[in-house]
Design a protein around this nucleic acid. Structure first.
Length: 853
RNA sequence: GCGGGCGUGGUGGAAUUGGUAGACACGCCAGGUUUAGGUCCUGGUGGCGGCGACGCCAUGGGGGUUCAAGUCCCUCCGCCCGCACCA
């Protein structure tokens, strides 16, 4: 008996595909195109299971559409700039460039063993000047178009290391290495004007029909368009005003305080004279810059002593607090608080003993009985205690209040977005240099296009603190392009989202001297199917949508949406293990005994098994894909990540699961390459007569083709595999008889073809084994025979009062009266309705009958 | 804190539009072949009751709409993702 040698077979077909250039593509106007893209990886060192899953999903899609006759673009590259390279440089004294390139080499080799159908000629790495030079030019274009500006903004500052910290490097308000409390510091930084497209980015979401609803909803909420008003309060004893943004101008009569951000100019002004306020501001700054840390901190305020005058109530003054939950980046950095109708304002008012005046009564409730306890009333209703607004509905009252403010010159209606402009400056070394020069005489001077690229130096020293680029002895010293005087380069680099915002277009013409060739981009774009993690639902995807619009404005492209279809995959989880001391153990450190106990191999002691969690280095619950591929082959790993869970849900990696996949592939191998009864040759004609069992299997094969095609169209890969397994069961169950051998061969061949996109090496091998001289990869997708898919009888469920009492086999599309009579004759139904009167019979054609008694 | 999602047997999951809950697998149990074992084959397998035909219960908890609810609505609980300098 021949055995399936996956190692040899997988290597063989990978070489054949590569030699023949099977997956190398070029634009072909005569054929429809399909662009499949998976989010490119950060070259962290080795591929992980998340990559295996992501890229398997993409590969199935690419191979499937290719078989359907499309010209499929399926590229891969490296998101190669980023913080981990710098961390590695500091920890291991390796240069970020060398570290990154080594990692890319390792991961490329690993990906190649998976048999993914990439056009490897198109590989790009964003850390190479050939790539990033183009985004430097784009940046200069944005600058000309007014899409870039400079403003001060806050960063996390580590006072010991003298570096800017990323949010993930701030743990409980302290620097991750230094352990000292971080400070908020203001720096002048570059911003891209994404807010100029806020409305368009919002509007166009509704046309992204092949995006998950939840992603569209998250983007909608992120953009956060709201309608409200600006109110300019008169500050008592001062010339200037305090401008706030509110979505509830109707509740102005219930206002009992104003609150401003800790870094609001007014707060800083008062803090300069007040030690206590300065201390409070410092405490707010210790929270860092992440919104989550600010919002989850206990709500606190500090009275500045300033008072504003209520615009509508004669003689009423409101205190102005600095509050740690007011964000300078949102609206005007100042709010007015109406405790009765906003929960956060209410909590604040209760804490600081401020008045709570209800101004909205729910419809039909007596105004006198409206009382606010610990819960604010945020619903609709009628205005009370509100002077000229009394009796109006909330909507009317908003309009009235805005009208009055406007007439008084104290404010006006306003639309506000939660979305903020995109800060792209990073005080980091391993990123794309921002192509500007600072000259004492000329100010900020863009690097002339002829001087691009501004190449990142690789001879840098990581032993000091701060940004190595800034400390480089020569790099930043240049002559001003305008006046020739000594000047210095910008030493900030781009946010790495910059690179990932346009790589999908670079893939269309990766060797071009320009960013990309317009005609090639026009042919391939948009991406028809984009696949990646849900964690990118907002930032990466929104930045890419913005970037495409910005490039359109600069004349690069003539479309604005980069991704027509989106699929977001779930995470890979695994059980966790700890030893008696509570230390995490790798899955390879433990062994499951026959009695089910899990022991630590090194000590023989019992290990504690924890629930399945997202694979992470910190909990050591990781399985190295290379190890799995080595033990079972790429096809087994691919089949397993596809078969157990729907792609958008989390997947549990289990040893039992991968073994199940492995056993199935071996079973299929025996069925096709080593059958008990020899299969007829590839060109054998269909026999005249088929036994009923053989015909049933033939029908099943055609139904499976139809169902699997439908499943693949909808990303139901786990269901597709379940159906293929059903067909496999059918083949094994078919006894010899009229036409059985022929049908068996047809069914086996169908299985091989349907599995082609999922387990391409085995499928290719079996295709050859079945006597075909062509590549399966070049073979069109099978077509189901509609006549064999259709059924002429259906099985109806028959219920009595909603409970299943029997089933009924009947001709498809039978008349309702016929179905009703037949249903009432089902023995078990007769028994159930005995002695009762039938009140109603509900017949749902071809589905169900419900007898109501 | 805010925004988004998920929750179905011992386990992963299936169930076009509200219409036979548990497809397909893993695991487990019983038997068989081969064997040193794994492999492989056959049968069984949501829970409770019954010799049985069958009946009752069951989709995180509670409530509701409906002839009919895993699916729709309300509410509570648990877990996960994102929150703008991780990628």
């Amino acid at each position: 008996m021949k055995r399936y040698n996956f190692k040899e077979t997988e290597r063989k077909w990978q070489e054949i595909w590569a030699t023949r250039g099977t997956f190398e593509v070029a634009p072909d106007p005569a054929r429809p195109k399909y662009y499949v893209l998976e989010m490119f990886p950060y070259p962290s060192g080795r591929i992980h299971m998340g990559h295996v899953r992501n890229y398997t999903l993409g590969d199935v899609t690419a191979r499937y559409w290719r078989a359907k006759g499309y010209n499929v673009l399926h590229p891969m590259g490296w998101d190669a700039f980023g913080l981990p390279a710098e961390n590695a440089a500091m920890a291991n004294r390796v240069a970020p460039a060398a570290w990154t390139r080594d990692n890319i080499a390792t991961m490329r080799r690993q990906l190649k063993t998976m048999g993914f159908s990439y056009d490897w000629r198109r590989e790009v790495a964003t850390c190479e000047p050939d790539y990033y030079r183009h985004e430097q030019k784009m940046f200069l274009g944005f600058l000309k178009e007014g899409l870039v500006y400079r403003k001060r903004s806050t960063v996390n500052w580590d006072p010991v290391e003298h570096t800017v910290l990323a949010n993930e490097q701030v743990i409980d308000g302290k620097g991750w290495r230094s352990g000292v409390p971080v400070e908020r510091r203001e720096l002048a930084q570059w911003f891209l004007r994404i807010t100029a497209f806020a409305d368009d980015l919002l509007q166009e979401l509704s046309h992204l029909e092949r995006w998950p609803d939840r992603v569209r909803l998250m983007q909608e909420n992120w953009i956060g368009r709201s309608e409200g008003a600006h109110v300019r309060f008169v500050l008592k004893g001062r010339e200037d005003r305090l401008e706030v943004y509110t979505t509830r101008p109707d509740t102005l009569f219930g206002a009992s305080f104003c609150a401003i951000a800790a870094n609001h100019p007014l707060a800083l002004e008062v803090a300069a004279k007040s030690k206590e306020l300065a201390d409070f501001v410092a405490a707010c700054n210790a929270l860092g810059t992440s919104e989550a840390s600010i919002e989850t901190a206990e709500k606190q305020g500090f009275d500045t002593g300033l008072r504003v005058v209520h615009p509508f109530i004669e003689g009423r003054e409101l205190p102005v607090y600095v509050a740690n939950f007011v964000l300078m980046e949102y609206g005007t950095g100042a709010i007015f608080g109406c405790p009765a109708h906003d929960q956060r304002d209410l909590d604040f008012a209760r804490k600081y003993g401020l008045p709570v005046v209800p101004v909205v009564a729910p419809a039909g409730v007596d105004p006198a009985s409206v009382e606010i306890g610990t819960e604010a009333y945020t619903g609709d209703g009628v205005l009370i205690n509100s002077g000229f607004l009394d009796g109006l509905a909330v909507d009317q009252a908003k309009r009235e209040a805005i009208g009055r403010l406007q007439a008084m010159g104290m404010g006006e209606g306003a639309v506000n977005y939660r979305l903020r402009d995109w800060g792209v400056s990073r005080q980091r070394y391993w990123g794309c240099p921002i192509p500007v020069i600072h000259c004492e005489k000329c100010g900020i001077v863009p690097v002339p296009e002829k001087d691009l690229p501004v190449v990142l130096p690789e001879d840098v020293d990581f032993t000091g603190s701060g940004n190595p680029l800034d400390r480089h002895p020569t790099w930043k010293h240049v002559a001003c392009p305008t006046c020739g005087a000594p000047a210095r380069r910008e030493t900030d680099t781009f946010d790495t989202f910059f690179e990932s915002s346009w790589y999908y277009m670079r893939f269309c013409s990766p060797q071009s001297d320009r960013a990309f060739e317009a005609d090639e981009v026009r042919y391939w774009m948009p991406v028809d199917q984009y696949i990646g993690g849900i964690e990118h639902a907002v930032l990466h995807l929104l930045y890419s949508r913005f970037f495409t619009r910005a490039l359109k404005q600069c004349g690069y492209v003539d479309f604005k949406e980069p991704f027509a279809g989106l699929m977001t995959q779930g995470m890979i989880c695994h059980e966790t293990y700890r030893n008696a001391e509570g230390k995490w153990l790798f899955p390879t450190d433990v062994r499951r005994e026959a009695d089910g106990r899990v022991i630590e191999i090194a000590t023989g002691a019992d290990a504690v098994v924890g629930r399945s969690e997202k694979m992470s280095k910190s909990k050591k619950n990781v399985v190295d894909p290379e190890r799995a591929v080595d033990a079972y082959g790429a096809d087994t790993a691919r089949l397993f990540v596809l078969s157990d869970s729907p792609p958008d849900r989390d997947l549990d990696w289990t040893e039992a699961g991968i073994e199940g996949a492995w056993r199935y592939l071996n079973r299929l191998w025996r069925l096709a390459a080593d059958p008990a009864t020899p299969l007829p040759p590839a060109d054998a004609p269909r026999p005249e007569s088929l036994s009923p069992e053989a015909e049933a299997l033939l029908r099943l094969a055609h139904k499976t083709i139809a169902a699997v095609s439908d499943d693949l169209d909808r990303f139901h890969f786990n269901k597709a595999i379940a159906r293929v397994r059903e067909l496999t069961n059918g083949v094994e169950a078919l006894q010899d008889g009229d036409g059985a051998a022929w049908v068996r061969r047809f069914a086996v061949e169908t299985i091989v073809r349907l599995l082609g996109p999922m387990t391409p090496h085995l499928a290719e091998e079996l295709w050859a084994e079945l006597g075909h001289a062509t590549l399966l990869a070049d073979t069109p997708w099978p077509q189901a025979d509609a006549a064999l898919v259709a059924e002429d009888t259906v099985t109806l469920a028959v219920q009595v009062n909603g409970k299943l009492r029997g089933t009924l086999d009947i001709a498809k599309d039978s008349a309702e009266t016929v179905v009703r009579e037949a249903a009432l004759q089902v023995p078990n139904v007769l028994k159930a309705i005995e002695g009762k009167s039938v009140r109603k019979v509900i017949v749902v054609p071809n589905r169900i009958v419900n007898v109501v008694v």
